[in-house]
Computed example of a mutant assay.
Amino acid sequence: MWAVYALLSAVFASLTALFAKVGITGINSTLATAVRTVFVLIMAWGMVAITGHGQGLRELSVKSWCFLALSGIATGASWLCYYKAMQTGPVTSVVTIDKFSLVLTMLLAAVFLGEAFNWKTALGAGLITAGTLLVAFAK
């Protein structure tokens, strides 16, 4: 089932890029990020309310709070940079470079989480890197 959610994530991420490019026309990218974040916040808390998982808030450990906070800060920084890049760059190049995060995640997961980084992972990371360079910087 995780693969279905991952595929849906890719579909929604694609729509996010297209909607963002149109939505930031003529406005400051930081303001656009803040407006977008309001809607993400409403949607996320709405899902918590609909699913009835709000009681889990009391069960979060200090470690969970800290790492979720760090994740939120990283997400905010990513979105601010993404919208700034999207405002002036071509969608295809911006999204391609943004998705290079996959390679960075593979490396960081191997180093910090002990996840496998074998020849298949290295080959995939190399191909993604080559594809990123080819698509993002091709003239």
Rank of each mutant, 00 (worst) to 15 (best):
V38R: 09
C81S: 13
M106K: 06
A44H: 07
L60M: 10
T16R: 02
G52K: 04
V40M: 08
S64P: 01
A6R: 02
K63G: 08
T88V: 09
A13E: 06
A17L: 03
M43H: 01
A116S: 15
D98R: 09
F67H: 04
S9D: 01
A69F: 11
L18P: 00
T88W: 04
L102T: 08
S61R: 07
S101D: 07
F112C: 14
T105Y: 02
L68M: 12
A13W: 15
K84P: 00
Y83H: 13
T37S: 14
C66V: 14
L70H: 06
K84E: 12
W79Q: 05
A10K: 12
I97D: 06
M1C: 04
E59L: 13
A136K: 08
Q87H: 13
G126K: 09
V40D: 08
G89I: 06
A125W: 14
C81T: 12
G131D: 01
G89P: 03
P90E: 08
Y82L: 12
V11K: 04
V135F: 11
I24D: 05
L104T: 14
E115R: 12
G124P: 12
M47L: 15
L134Y: 07
L113N: 05
M106E: 04
G131L: 03
L57A: 07
Q55D: 09
G54I: 09
A116L: 14
A130Q: 00
S64F: 07
L133H: 02
S78D: 05
C66H: 12
L70G: 15
N28M: 03
L104V: 15
A69M: 05
T121D: 07
T16E: 09
G52R: 01
F137G: 00
G72A: 05
A3E: 01
T25D: 09
L18V: 00
T37N: 06
L123F: 14
V48D: 03
L70K: 02
S101R: 10
T30Q: 05
I73Q: 10
G56K: 09
S78H: 14
T96C: 10
A77E: 01
G114D: 03
K99L: 11
Y5R: 08
W119T: 05
C81D: 02
A110W: 15
Y5L: 13
L102H: 02
S101W: 07
P90S: 10
G72I: 04
N118S: 09
S64V: 08
M43K: 00
T92L: 09
L18G: 01
M1R: 08
C66A: 15
D98W: 14
A130V: 06
A34L: 10
F100Q: 10
L57D: 04
V22K: 09
G126E: 12
G54Y: 13
G114S: 00
T132D: 08
S61F: 07
L68P: 01
F39K: 04
A74Y: 06
I27H: 08
L107V: 15
L7T: 13
L68V: 04
G46S: 09
T88E: 10
C66G: 05
V35E: 03
G26D: 10
V38K: 14
I50Q: 06
